[in-house]
């Protein structure tokens, strides 16, 4: 099962390396990873998407929590968090064949960033599922280049938070 883990870390040299080393050494796979600043200066947020059993997830959380630069580890529970990803997509489409693509992108809230003679670049932000569906839509046209950022997320203020902090045990 896939899980999203949000890790707040001190913005210190090696903080990301320590987390990724821990994953590698304990045999856990990272599906996607996004790093960026937060509302607190000197604190970064690392959002990890991992595919693992519940038992492994608990191990991952506990092992990350032991790292000295890590301030907080939270699992973003589906339904209780907003999660977004950014997609950049370069699709082969000659001028006469691109109208419906542009329309679909617009319908999904996407933007057309560049129009070339043979290709178009789209930007789309949304849930990973929305990006997946646009990707599939574009595929028959011929995808020339595709980049996704890895997801980021935060808990919804509108729902009661059950998202667990590690330290659960103590």
């Amino acid at each position: 099962m896939k899980h999203t883990i949000s890790v707040q870390v001190e913005d210190k040299p090696g903080a990301l390396a320590r987390i990724s080393t821990m994953f590698a050494r304990r045999g856990f796979n990272i599906d996607s990873l996004a790093v960026g600043p937060t509302e607190r200066s000197g604190v970064s947020c690392i959002t990890l998407r991992v595919d693992c059993e519940q038992h492994s997830l608990e191990q991952i959380e506990k092992q990350i929590h032991k790292l000295v630069n890590v301030l907080r580890v939270t699992e973003l529970v589906p339904g209780e968090a907003v999660e977004r990803e950014l997609l950049l997509l370069k699709v082969a489409a000659a001028a006469d064949k691109r109208a419906d693509l542009i329309a679909s992108a617009a319908a999904l809230g996407g933007r057309t960033l560049d129009l070339g003679a043979d290709a178009v670049v789209f930007e789309l932000t949304g849930t990973p599922e929305e990006l997946d569906s646009f990707q599939e839509l574009a595929r028959p046209h011929g995808i020339q280049e595709l980049i996704r950022t890895g997801r980021i997320g935060m808990s919804r203020p509108s729902t009661r938070r059950t998202s667990r902090r590690l330290s659960a045990i103590n």
Partner: peptide, 8 residues
């Protein structure tokens, strides 16, 4: 003392 050992 190490929570990560519990249930490992």
């Amino acid at each position: 003392i190490d929570p990560a050992e519990i249930g490992k």
